[in-house]
Design a binder for these strands. Structure first.
Lengths: 243, 243
DNA sequence: ATCGCATCTTAACCTATGTTTGCAAGCGAA
DNA sequence: TTCGCTTGCAAACATAGGTTAAGATGCGAT
């Protein structure tokens, strides 16, 4: 099974085999990381580019009162800090949410490779523009959707994103977040997350036990949440490779 | 007084006089637009790049139930649709909030110019990464700050951003949004916006009448809101040019 | 000057969500 | 097995913010 980074970037631009190989070879130092560990702190200017290969990580900020807001989920194939160098330093932190595997790409190597391969450059910028689009949808989610729809929408999105890297073939996926992590993502309290989950289960939309999330009826959940995948910009048919 | 686009981009990279001139010359078709007019619709693939020269515009999405969520304020110097071509089409709409002046840059011309001027390319990408950083902070704002702090934070941010293009020298600025627009930005109802504004006025933090917003004590408002400008990445001293 | 429409303001009432707390269930370590 | 910790669940209560509706105010057009 190919590298999730490559699988993801193929949604953004048609990479040649040479480009895919070069990218995969650039990826070094894959290492396992436990749950709830910081990978990058606010204010850092990381030397290498980090990529999630397995598990879930997140972007987050802490507030003075101790509150935490998670601003993005990073799933396999996602970059943590692709273009920080343009901004100078991180304005937020990155942490794992579950046990994960994280790899590095030497920043120089990646830049050199990108210079020689405009299509690759395009794919990398595509990925950051999609990150931005996701952020916009999260903002809509927070601002205008009541919490049951909000959580449902987040489930629809992970399903679609994991599906795009072949990790949710049957709408069944590894999703070992805690309810507290979900609360800090949705901007509500963890006890309210619990209430909402009861409701989603009662309505037969999902099951979620032992870190495994199953969407029982994708259409029904998407209708309930008002989910439309257009903002993920997964143009082509998702990950239908020849084997 | 120089072009606000140029003034803004100078925060991102040190542009040569030639680059500044070329950019300014590329900007054509400045035209006035009334308040609350759509500039770009969801699904469009705009041929030219739009820039706000005067007034306020916004990014927004409508929801099935008629709700509107504003996801970004566009102030003079901001791009509306710089890199859409990489994503194919707009996943959200753009509208004016107040009477504005909008200019265009031919997409081809801009691409050619950027190819010859790596520093300019850098400045353009810097601008989109800052947009993303602002979006992240808005998400934190929505998720974790109670509405008085949330509105206050938005005021701190516009002040800083307008200041960066020399449009809020004394913490006094043109800000002719309606309370409804503010509500759709903050994810609360317009009557609650009104309640919150009373409070901010009562506490002597701001005045806002006749479309003019004055921050009475920048330090106090920023402390109240928990505002830290780092996410705007305005490295250098804001807009202190020789004349 | 006055009419008409936007916007702002206020009030009364309602509901979603937060807070606090206690307990149960799961699970890894000794 | 038992201990200890984290996570999930539930109930009682408190409150921020939503909804509706009705005046007030300002302002452009005639």
């Amino acid at each position: 099974m190919a590298n999730p980074l490559v699988r993801k970037l193929e949604h953004g631009a048609p990479l040649s085999d040479e480009e895919k190989d070069a990218l995969a070879k650039l990826m070094v130092g894959a290492r396992p990381v436990g749950a709830h560990e910081d990978l990058i702190a606010e204010g850092d200017a990381p030397e290498h580019v980090h990529v999630v290969l397995e598990g879930f990580a997140c972007r987050y900020k802490m507030l003075p009162d101790g509150g935490r807001q998670i601003m993005a989920w990073l799933v396999p194939g996602d970059f943590c800090d692709l273009h920080v160098s343009l901004l100078g330093e991180m304005d937020h932190a990155i942490a794992t949410l579950t046990p994960s595997v994280i790899a590095f790409l030497p920043r120089n190597g990646l830049e050199v490779l990108a210079e020689d391969h405009p299509t690759l450059t395009r794919a990398l910028w595509w990925a950051t523009l999609v990150d931005e689009a996701v952020l916009r949808e999260w903002l809509v989610n927070m601002g205008r959707r009541p919490s049951p729809q909000r959580i449902a929408h987040m489930f629809c999105e992970v399903r679609a994103r994991l599906h795009a890297v072949d990790l949710a073939p049957d709408a069944i996926m590894e999703f070992p977040l805690s309810q507290t992590d979900l609360a800090d993502s949705a901007g509500i309290s963890s006890v309210h997350v619990n209430r909402v989950l009861q409701q989603l289960r009662d309505e037969g939309l999902i099951t979620w036990r032992g870190g495994v999330l199953q969407v029982l009826d994708v259409g029904a959940l998407e209708a309930f949440a008002g989910f439309d995948a257009n903002y993920l910009h997964l143009k082509g048919p998702p990950a239908s490779h020849a084997h």
